[in-house]
C-alpha cells in the first residue's frame, strides 16, 4: 500500500510540536536549524521553550545534556552529520555516559542531501551512534511511522537518536503505536528474508512485489528501530528462509547489515547479503540517481536479491 507523499521534516516538526505544546518539559534547541526542522510554528507559539544557538552543534549537545539534568526534555534537530559525527564525543559523554534524556534528530539523513556532497551525507550515523552504550536509534520508514515514533521517542526515558530524510516520502502504513525495538512484519514468505530500515522500505516493497511476480516469496521485515535490534524476529525469519538481505541508506560497513550479520553469525549462521552504499565518499547528484547508481532503487534491489538467491 503506497499512499500520498509528505515532507518528513514537516511531519516530524509538527508531531513534536503538538506534544510539546501540552508538555512544558519539552524544549526545542536549534543550531540555525529549527525552522528547516518543522519548528517554525512552535517557535512562535512557545518562544520561551525554543532556544536558538546559531551554528554551534557541539555546544548545543552539551547544553541539551545540562537542560536534561534539570528535568527538561530537549529535542535537537539539524542536518544529520552535524548532530552525530561532529559532536560525537559530546554525544558519547554528555548524553550516553551521563545517561541524559535528550532526543537528537538527524534530518536530511543518509544520502538525501544528495548534490551537496560527502560533507552533507550521513552514511555512518547508525554505526557511530550504535557504539555509544544506552542510545536507542530510530529510522522510521514513512510519515505515519515518523508520527508514532516521535510519540514513542518522547515517552522513552533516555538518549535517542532518530534519523529522518528530506525528500517527500509516501505513506506505507496506517498509523499504529510504535514499540521501540520491535520490527514490523510487512510481508510473509519462505524464500528470503529482507530486512529494511528508513525510507528505503518503500523501494523494498516495490522490489518485493516484483519478486512475488517472479515466484519468489519474501519475508519483509521493516526495522524502524535500528538499535537495539529485534533479535527474535530476525533470527526466527532467518531460520525460516535461510537467506537474509539487508537494505539501508548507510555505509555497507558498520550499519544495519553489520549488526544483522553479527547477530546471525552468533545465533543462527545464515548467508547475508548487505545492500547499502559502498564504503567511499559517495558521489553527488539527484537523490534518485544516486540511489540507482548504488543499486538501492527498486530495480537494483530486485536484481540483487535475485542474484543472491542464484
Amino acid at each position: 500500500m503506497i499512499g500520498n507523499k509528505e515532507d518528513p521534516r514537516k511531519v516530524f516538526g509538527k508531531a513534536v510540536s503538538e506534544i510539546a505544546l501540552g508538555d512544558d518539559r519539552i524544549v526545542i534547541l536549534s543550531a540555525d536549524s529549527g525552522k528547516s526542522s518543522g519548528f517554525g510554528d512552535f517557535m512562535k507559539a512557545a518562544p520561551e521553550r525554543y532556544f536558538e544557538f546559531g551554528i554551534m552543534e557541539q555546544a548545543v549537545v552539551g547544553v541539551a545534556s545540562g537542560l536534561a539534568t534539570t528535568g527538561k526534555i530537549p529535542v535537537f534537530c539539524a542536518i544529520a552529520p552535524f548532530v552525530t559525527a561532529r559532536p560525537y564525543e559530546m554525544f558519547r559523554n554528555d548524553l550516553g555516559y551521563m545517561g541524559q534524556n535528550v532526543k537528537i534528530v538527524g534530518r536530511n539523513g543518509g544520502i538525501t542531501y544528495s548534490d551537496l556532497g560527502a560533507t552533507h551525507h550521513s552514511l555512518d550515523d547508525f554505526g557511530i551512534i550504535s557504539m555509544i552504550p544506552g542510545v536507542t536509534i530510530l529510522a522510521p520508514q514513512d510519515p505515519n511511522e515518523i508520527r508514532s515514533a516521535v510519540k514513542a521517542m518522547l515517552a522513552h526515558q533516555g538518549p535517542v537518536y532518530m534519523r529522518i530524510g528530506n525528500a517527500a516520502i509516501p505513506n506505507l502504513f496506517e498509523e499504529s503505536p510504535f514499540v521501540i525495538g520491535e520490527g514490523r512484519q510487512i510481508t510473509s514468505g519462505e524464500d528470503v528474508t529482507i530486512l529494511s530500515t528508513g525510507t528505503l522500505t518503500a523501494s523494498v516493497l516495490k522490489a518485493a512485489q516484483r519478486l512475488e511476480a517472479a515466484g519468489i516469496h519474501a519475508d519483509v521485515i521493516g526495522l524502524p528501530t535500528v538499535w537495539p535490534l529485534d533479535e527474535e524476529k530476525i533470527v526466527a525469519s532467518a531460520r525460516k528462509t535461510g537467506k537474509v538481505v539487508t537494505v539501508e541508506e548507510h555505509y555497507v560497513h558498520g550499519g544495519l547489515g553489520s549488526f544483522v550479520a553479527t547477530l546471525l553469525a552468533e545465533r543462527c549462521p545464515t548467508p547475508v547479503c548487505r545492500l547499502a552504499i559502498p564504503h567511499l565518499y559517495a558521489t553527488s547528484g539527484p537523490y534518485d540517481q544516486i540511489l540507482k547508481k548504488y543499486g538501492l532503487d527498486a530495480e537494483g534491489i530486485f536484481q540483487s536479491v535475485k542474484q543472491f538467491l542464484g
Binding site: 548534490d115 551537496l116 556532497g117 560527502a118 565518499y281 558521489t283 553527488s284 547528484g285 539527484p286
Partner: peptide, 15 residues
C-alpha cells in the same frame, strides 16, 4: 552543476 557525478558538487571537493 547539480547533475550526477559532477566535478562541481554543492560543496568543494579537492579530488
Amino acid at each position: 552543476y547539480g547533475s550526477l557525478d559532477s566535478k562541481i558538487p554543492g560543496h568543494p571537493d579537492m579530488h
